[in-house]
Write a protein that binds this DNA or RNA. Structure first.
Lengths: 355, 355
DNA sequence: TGATCTTTTTGAATCGACTCAAGACACCGA
DNA sequence: TCGGTGTCTTGAGTCGATTCAAAAAGATCA
């Protein structure tokens, strides 16, 4: 162990421990000569300040926990990067934890972070209404919900997922699709539900305004728009592929002509399955993903996707947290909501598709 | 702050602090009746053990730092996932830090982790020979190099990058390419250099064994294999695209017929640029990437790539670290090296390409 | 030179949990 | 009733850095 402590430094520099502490924390109040002796001793002994002891004494940590649903999802990597960047400017460390959308893992991480008395926790919860989150806040660890709206008990940053789903739905309907598949993840994930609600609302609006038929070729004979939803067990490339294979196996007349996937990983897997089964995208099957991760643009067929300000989500979350920590009394919880925007690429754009 | 401490619990349960500590750490030595009283008090007060104080006293943390070059690169996400999984089994927490290939950021993270007295550090260093790493180990924080071979001063897990580069080179040469471009990242990154050396060795072997001409159509008129190397400032999709654009701008006769990219992000960007400039892959330009991330298979043209056992790297690193921590005396540093393997997909496979 | 004010330095108390030698207690047989 | 044997419980001391009232050292001026 790095066993050199402040006491040894004090001895070698022939000063008291109080002075060493002052050099470390408020060097300007120490006389230059003494300061130099202490710095020399520190260097000679290779002293490294024990942050654990410091933290115990001052009671406040410079560490923030960030719990995400899936570290391997570039969406969260970008959120983390945004958070990290801003935290860094405030000399604060972000520790990234992966819940893998598993409530038990999430709970373990929450326990660990609370036990470590972190400054606060940013979390994309598996279940935002879990009493655990309220307890944390009540016991003094501020929590900011990320990519998930809070209800006033804590701060949150999110993107309007219903709007995102709606935009995607409107887009596909405008392109003439009359039988649409929604490929979701676990129902327990709020984002999945909201995106589903969003496309549902787009579909029902379409039914209301144009009861008789479609505006463009490709509409079904009866005119009404049909929406089917599948909820896969995970928001992963693998489960997207599984969904795609299931779709490909359907008889043509039952098969939807477009799929809206709850995230880009699902969409990429779905796309792979289409290619594997000889279905052309977007001609036989249009696809719209969600998150607009960098890989979406680089897919087999460049993927249309509902984009979110990923890094900004992370930055804003840190910002809210620092604000709360700085003035716990004055602080009013806020819910920041960003707008998603659809990036149309080839996977849903019939005009650019091969004949 | 969560201000309830062991003393309050002791008061409420009408026992001493020692007994509460025993309940927490060695419940079996406490009589069932007392144990229950203590557990009740803990529950009623919402007591959460202060890991900071515990750590200060026992001197050993249950946290491991993992510093990677780029959190947004799925390769590292997978390594992290592997590490996390094994650490979890040993009731240990992995905190993920991003150096973004910046030595200053790396240093800051190393400082922070050492100050926090973590159990150990897994790192993919920007510069493996940095004296800082040796200092850390000397002062008692074990270090395991990840994806980078050590020289006996510490443990390491790596994949043979020269072999990987060699395999990729041999593959491209066999496919008849006689003018090959190596797209690297910063020269300072060891992996980039090794992969370059690998393909260089493949090229020079090809020159030696077949000085007069190629084995397959497509060889240059003079027969020799030519290798050009570009070193981009980052291993990112963006810089891959920039490299691709630069290549596309070359006159056909000067343009290489194949590119070996130092990682898949570069390769995906490069691929996008080809598509944007109407160059067909693999017909006009074959591409081989590195890492075989999940997105490689889902690219515009499925990407050939040199695969690495990503999660195994992470697991093994944790394994080595835990071994060292468990028996610091007996421990002998080990260098574990895995073999890469080439996954051939459409991007480098002329036989499946369009006429 | 002594009084007064300012700048530095000191060191014991503190944060919260853990350790362990020592004490309290229960039970048994004589 | 007493000593012996195990089983539980106790609480002062400890980990390392910070704090802050108080002491010491230095500076200034009459």
């Amino acid at each position: 162990m790095s066993t050199t402590n402040i006491k040894e430094v004090a001895q070698r520099a022939r000063v008291s421990v109080g002075t060493v502490s002052n050099v470390l924390n408020r060097p300007e109040i120490v006389s230059p000569a003494t300061r130099k002796r202490v710095f020399d001793a520190i260097r000679e002994l290779g002293f490294v300040r024990n942050e654990v002891a410091r933290h115990l004494r001052v009671g406040r940590s410079r560490t923030v926990g960030l719990i995400v649903l899936d570290v391997a999802n570039p969406f969260f990597a970008d959120v983390a990067q945004g958070a990290d960047a801003l935290a860094d400017e405030h000399d604060t460390m972000v520790v990234l934890c992966n819940s893998a959308a598993d409530p038990a893992r999430e709970l373990r991480h929450l326990d660990q972070l609370e036990q470590q008395r972190v400054m606060g926790i940013l979390i994309t919860p598996v279940d935002a209404s879990s009493p655990r989150l309220a307890e944390l806040a009540a016991r003094g660890t501020p929590v900011v919900l990320v990519d998930s709206a809070a209800t006033g008990l804590q701060c949150s940053v999110a993107v309007d997922d219903r709007l995102g789903g709606h935009i995607a739905g409107v887009h596909l309907i405008e392109r003439g699709h009359r039988k649409i598949l929604f490929v979701g993840g676990p129902r327990s994930i709020k984002q999945v539900g909201d995106r589903h609600l969003g496309i549902m609302s787009a579909v029902s609006e379409a039914r209301d305004t144009e009861p008789g038929g479609g505006v463009e070729p490709g509409g079904g004979p009866g005119g009404g728009v049909e929406l089917v939803a599948w909820f896969m067990p995970a928001l992963s490339v693998t489960h997207g592929r599984i969904a795609g294979e299931r779709v490909a196996a359907l008889p043509v007349e039952e098969r939807p002509t477009a799929a809206f996937c709850a995230n880009d990983l699902l969409a990429l897997g779905f796309l792979q399955a289409m290619a594997a089964h000889g279905l052309r995208v977007p001609h036989d099957m249009a696809i719209v993903g969600y998150d607009d991760i960098d890989f979406a643009a680089a897919a087999t067929v460049p993927l249309s996707s509902v984009g979110q300000p990923r890094e900004l989500l992370g930055r804003t979350a840190i910002d809210l947290l620092l604000e709360e920590v700085a003035e716990p009394e004055l602080h009013r919880h806020r819910q920041v909501i960003f707008q998603p925007d659809l990036v149309v690429r080839q996977s849903s754009d019939l005009h650019r598709s091969p004949p």
